[in-house]
Design a protein around this nucleic acid. Structure first.
Lengths: 363, 363
DNA sequence: GTGAAAGCGCTAACAA
DNA sequence: TTGTTAGCGCTTTCAC
């Protein structure tokens, strides 16, 4: 008697993966039952369930996510646009996001904008075409239009790291202004009077907030704000190099410099080394973002550490929460930074009296 | 007379994106025609095409990729498994891959294995469920079984950076052995006699090839191979730190060390600084992989630079070629590295007689 | 508890 | 050149 209608070659299957129908036939049940077993929803008798599981195993069946996604309302895909995955900051951010998404069986689709609004838009369009369940973005800072349009279409959105201007979204960022002003405080306490800033592009909230913090810190210390001491960059390495050059070529160069992001710090270091200047004796340095290499430098770099990974985690959690509950109140999370004092920010005056070793990060 | 059967509210659409059917109705054509216009395949009269394009514009229609993917044979998704996106090496690799995929309208799905075969397998299963068109992988080095199974299912595969043992696949890697032995040659030429190696995990082809190159280089110079001078690491930063410690604590420590990868170099540097040793006078150093921070170090780091981005590009091209032509001959690409001599590898004897500036990378 | 059947949005035969 | 139609593999009413 027929065991089961095992049409087609049973073991020879070369390419076509088995489908839910194959499983159903082999287990002598309907596809609906197979689906129920897989998803765990709906009651299925032990007996049938076992038959289905066996069939799945012997056929090495893997549900086709593409088909499932088409059928279901929620695609379980999240789009993430950042500026550059080669920047360790964003790499860590993405890992944080991914850890949460993975836990919740979401897929992460990544797009790099290279700080180019056009590319950013293109990625967003791709995401919409992929019918993502939500989007996390570090805006390039130009138009908030596209975001509000996306939001109006009912697609959950979370801004991370940077805040788009006047636009109301769930967001996770860092207390940039406080961070920068704290760094200035520290430098002032070390005796520095002429403190330079390598600033970032004006369309980025982070850059502007850090600039504000710099100003604020100087004012609090009763120090003048000398526009010459503020040199702009674009958050990339070469611009840090150039900006540091301009600072060093000033008639009265600064004795300490705060750099607004990690890549520009690298550039600034290069310039300092090229000039043969000694850190921190001739020029003290504080950078934004702690990086794996910061403590391998000599002298080790004092940095404003951001809880990057955590930002990613929170952003993802915020997004998932919004997906679950589209009309919940908007949340704006602001995280604190930590000034990690290493060796690059002493100043001549206080040298020796100040033990950086003691304060050294307890990593 | 009816302009067109514009059922449902025209402008109020809140969430549901418009479908190909909406476009078809608005343009008073069949969905097939719309499809033809979108894909550019099949002849469509100018008149209808214009109507369709108008409809697409006014409805802000975006094709649903999920549906399209289900229907088409080729999903145009490529899965990529690497060990860690936070490692700049892999970040650059992924960018290289992505650049080609993007050009060809492929989507990149990323998975990090963290050098954990289990996680690698899990990502591969995900890829299969997503019905990817192909997979690019930097193997964790354990089982080649799963890969041959995937290959047998007819899914194109490309190995990148690392080669899985005895398994025949398209691959892109670097001439690791030659690279390491070249570095040793250089150190020997600088007068070093005791040269240490911080090696990598034995299951990775890259680590083994670099070890072989180290041995080969010493032998070529007629130097003995002292097992004490070979300290193992796991390609992560802390293990480089530990390994360097073991080397420095040797009764007769090395005067120069070659480190098998970038992260361990960072760890090694930390240890060297902690001991207050001077590079290169007291210990010379050459690292694998050039990194943005390598030239911001003081002294700038001598490295074996790998054409990482290019590796990614080639891997992606190989994969696309294999997708197009599944039965073409297997290609194994091996790229050359470049020893970039900076300041970390002089030795006392030759100091001053050797101009690293001149050889400095012409970046 | 289980199955039949409709259909997610799209493409690709096949007709006309 | 254009339209009709049949699914891609899955989930989900809706009956039984």
């Amino acid at each position: 008697m027929p065991k089961h209608s095992d049409e087609a070659s049973p073991t020879e299957a070369v390419h076509n993966p088995s489908t839910i129908k194959d499983v159903a036939e082999r287990a002598r049940v309907s596809t609906a039952t197979v689906s129920r077993v897989i998803s765990g929803s709906g009651r299925v008798s032990k007996r049938l369930e076992q038959r289905v599981r066996n069939a799945i195993l012997t056929l090495d069946y893997r549900p086709n996510q593409v088909a499932r996604r088409l059928r279901k309302r929620n695609t379980q895909i999240v789009g993430v646009v950042i500026s550059d995955i080669q920047n360790p900051f964003f790499a860590a951010l993405v890992e944080g996001i991914d850890s949460i998404l993975k836990q919740n069986d979401y897929l992460l689709l990544l797009g790099s904008s290279s700080e180019n609004p056009q590319r950013e838009q293109q990625h967003l369009r791709t995401f919409l075409s992929e019918v993502v369940s939500g989007i996390i973005f570090a805006t390039t800072g130009e138009d908030t239009d596209i975001y509000s349009r996306i939001q109006q279409e009912g697609i959950p959105l979370v801004a991370v790291d940077r805040k788009p201007g006047d636009f109301e979204v769930d967001s996770v960022q860092v207390a940039n202004e406080a961070a920068a002003s704290q760094a200035i405080d520290h430098l002032v306490a070390e005796g520095h009077q002429r403190i330079g800033l390598i600033a970032g592009p004006s369309q980025l909230s982070t850059a502007m907030q850090r600039l504000a913090g710099y100003r604020c810190g100087l004012q609090a210390a009763g120090l003048p704000i000398d526009p010459d001491l503020i040199q702009g960059g674009d958050f990339r390495q070469p611009s840090g190099y150039q900006a540091m050059r301009r600072l060093l070529e000033l008639p009265r160069p600064p004795s300490a410099v705060l750099v607004s992001n990690n890549l520009m710090t690298l550039g600034a270091l290069q310039m300092i080394h090229e000039r043969g200047l000694h850190i921190p004796q001739e020029i003290a340095l504080i950078g934004f973002d702690d990086m794996p290499w910061a403590s391998s430098l000599r002298p080790a770099l004092t940095v404003i550490a951001q809880p990057v990974y955590e930002m990613g985690v929170l952003a993802a959690q915020l997004l998932l929460a919004r997906i679950q509950e589209p009309h919940k109140r908007i949340e704006q999370i602001v995280l604190d930074t930590e000034l990690i004092v290493r060796a690059s920010c002493w100043c001549l005056g206080s040298q020796g009296t100040y033990s950086t070793q003691a304060i050294e990060e307890k990593l």
